[in-house]
Amino acid sequence: MGVFTQVYDTPAAVPPARLFKAMTLDFHNLFPKLVDSIHSIEFTQGNGAPGTIKKITTIEGEESKYVLHRVDAIDEGSFVYNFSIIDGSGLPETLEKISFESQLVEGSNGGTIRKVHAKYFTKGEAVLTEEELKANQTKIQGLVKLVEGYLLANPHY
Rank of each mutant, 00 (worst) to 15 (best):
64 S>A: 14
63 E>I: 15
29 N>M: 08
46 G>Y: 06
58 T>F: 00
35 V>D: 10
44 T>D: 07
33 K>V: 14
60 E>G: 15
48 G>A: 13
69 H>E: 13
50 P>K: 14
57 T>N: 02
70 R>V: 08
49 A>W: 08
35 V>K: 13
65 K>P: 03
81 Y>H: 15
63 E>F: 05
72 D>E: 14
52 T>S: 14
27 F>S: 02
83 F>R: 04
69 H>G: 02
83 F>P: 02
57 T>S: 07
61 G>S: 14
68 L>G: 02
41 I>L: 02
75 D>F: 06
59 I>Q: 14
67 V>N: 13
26 D>R: 11
74 I>Y: 02
49 A>I: 02
48 G>L: 12
35 V>A: 07
82 N>Y: 00
83 F>G: 01
51 G>C: 10
78 S>F: 05
60 E>F: 04
47 N>V: 08
66 Y>R: 05
49 A>Q: 12
75 D>T: 06
39 H>C: 05
47 N>D: 12
61 G>P: 13
65 K>Q: 09
51 G>N: 09
60 E>R: 13
58 T>K: 00
72 D>F: 11
29 N>C: 04
73 A>F: 13
69 H>T: 06
40 S>P: 05
89 S>T: 10
63 E>M: 10
69 H>L: 13
60 E>C: 12
53 I>D: 02
37 S>K: 10
72 D>C: 05
84 S>G: 12
88 G>D: 03
56 I>C: 12
62 E>R: 15
49 A>G: 06
42 E>N: 12
45 Q>H: 11
45 Q>E: 11
57 T>H: 01
33 K>N: 10
50 P>E: 12
82 N>V: 00
33 K>W: 11
89 S>Y: 00
70 R>G: 09
40 S>N: 05
52 T>D: 12
79 F>E: 06
29 N>P: 02
45 Q>V: 11
37 S>G: 11
45 Q>A: 08
31 F>I: 06
67 V>I: 15
56 I>G: 03
74 I>D: 02
62 E>Q: 15
87 D>M: 01
35 V>M: 14
63 E>C: 10
61 G>H: 14
88 G>V: 00
46 G>E: 03
76 E>C: 10
76 E>Y: 03
74 I>N: 08
31 F>M: 14
27 F>A: 06
34 L>S: 10
42 E>L: 06
89 S>V: 00
70 R>F: 01
65 K>R: 11
28 H>N: 07
43 F>A: 06
75 D>L: 06
54 K>N: 04
65 K>C: 04
68 L>Q: 07
70 R>K: 13
76 E>W: 00
40 S>Y: 01
73 A>D: 08
30 L>R: 01
50 P>L: 11
71 V>R: 01
36 D>T: 11
51 G>D: 11
69 H>W: 15
54 K>E: 02
89 S>G: 03
72 D>Y: 08
85 I>R: 03
57 T>Y: 02
64 S>G: 09
46 G>M: 07
78 S>N: 12
75 D>W: 08
34 L>Y: 09
66 Y>L: 11
36 D>V: 05
